[in-house]
Computed example of a mutant assay.
Amino acid sequence: MKRDAEAIGIGTQLTRLGRDPQEQHGFVNTPVYRGSTVIFKTVDDLENSRAKYAYGTLGTPTIESLESAWSAIAGAAGTVISPSGLGALALALLTTLKSGDHLLMPDSVYRPTRTFCATLLAKFGVEIEYYDPVIADGIEELFKSNTSTIFLESPGSQSFEIQDVPAITRIARARGIKTIIDNTWATPIFFRAHDHGCDISVEAGTKYLGGHSDLLMGLVSANAQTWPELRKTYDSLAMLPGAEDCFLALRGLRTMHLRLEAAQRRGLEIAAWMAEQPEVMRVLHPALPSCPGHELWKRDFKGATGLFSVILKPQFDKQSIAAMLDHMEIFGMGYSWGGFESLIVPFDCGEYRTATRWAPGGLALRLQIGLEDTEDLKRDLRSGLDRLGGGAGSR
């Protein structure tokens, strides 16, 4: 299948990867395998673990089907799966770090990753230093003798800074430093992180892979050099997902490219429309030419998804935000993204950043654009913006 995957389109790949009807009595999809104990035929087989699956914590056909499919689309040597995106991030960091190491972390990183660093990693003697995500090749000035890992997230969580991933990974590789990227926003369909030099790529399958807001999952893929250590760490922790979640993820995989295309189209339409509204100061969407980092996005990415942020004009306060959001009819207030439903949340990065200053000039909202009709979404947003300004911005 790997040879086929190099010659066929992504839509065809996603219909074929991670399944073999001949191994499952002709049924199209891999069934759900649940279990702990694996039975061996002989003592010799038992003592020498002569079985494809020796115990439930080492995997099942359902898990392996998803692992192999994800490795193929990510261009990875191997993939492991965890029960959540945050679990996957923790697994990746534990693979490359040890006590006494120095970790470089972008100041724009997903906040729960920051919390993991401040609690568990700091507890075990890892030195964490935050850096400006747009530093590019200047990151070399931050290297220490004990720097072992650089973490990247592009675009940045909430604030959407695009990092120069090829520049950073090139410098890191020359110094023997491992790189990990949170690639959840783009997925491997729109950004193949390993092709851009990343040793480990982490995606929250909770988002676009699942696509229906009904599962939690994280995926960690690695290049050939880093894969053995990742698998060793994974087997040591036995951080497996549930079989039903893997089944749902495999089902979501078949249509992920179609949903991503819809997310890109709808997200760009709403982002461009929001940029025209009188209450909005600017829109943070990497695919818009007005967004900082757009040229890097255009160079490195194959597409954009349906998540972006807007900065409101400075006259609005938190009470105005509440008046807008408390009465939305279609947009829900909730975290995550990548599902069929549209979401909106206020945020303030300035509460926790340390290496950079978040001062956008106005209050910020993050929007996830779902599969509703865009005209309905515009009406809901326009009504909300009217409430935001007490009706002053109505049209």
Rank of each mutant, 00 (worst) to 15 (best):
I8D: 06
G9Q: 07
G9E: 12
T12Y: 00
T12S: 07
T12K: 09
Q13T: 00
Q13G: 00
L14H: 00
T15N: 01
R16Y: 00
R16M: 01
R19W: 02
R19A: 00
P21T: 01
P21F: 01
Q22S: 06
Q24M: 01
N29F: 08
G35L: 08
G35P: 03
I39G: 03
I39D: 07
K41N: 11
K41D: 15
R50K: 10
R50M: 08
Y53V: 08
A54R: 13
Y55A: 14
P61N: 03
S68V: 07
S71H: 04
A72P: 00
G75C: 11
G78P: 04
A88N: 10
A90Q: 15
L91Y: 09
A92C: 13
T95R: 12
L97F: 11
L104Q: 06
V109G: 01
R111G: 01
L120M: 09
Y131I: 11
V134D: 03
D137S: 14
E141K: 13
K144S: 14
S145K: 13
T149C: 12
E153P: 00
S154M: 04
S157Y: 07
I162Y: 02
P166V: 03
I171M: 09
A174E: 15
G176R: 04
K178P: 05
W185G: 03
A186C: 14
P188K: 01
R192G: 10
A204W: 04
L209M: 05
G218I: 02
N223Q: 11
N223G: 15
R231Y: 12
R231Q: 13
S236E: 12
S236K: 08
L240W: 05
A243N: 10
A243P: 05
A249W: 06
L253P: 01
L253A: 06
T255L: 08
H257Y: 09
H257I: 09
L258T: 12
Q264W: 15
I270A: 09
M281P: 00
L284E: 03
H294W: 07
K298I: 03
D300F: 13
F301G: 01
F301P: 03
G306P: 09
S309A: 15
I311T: 15
K313A: 07
P314V: 06
P314S: 13
F316P: 11
K318W: 14
I321S: 09
D326I: 10
E329Q: 12
I330T: 12
W337L: 10
F340Q: 11
F347W: 14
G350I: 13
E351S: 14
L365Q: 07
E375V: 03
K378E: 11
R379K: 12
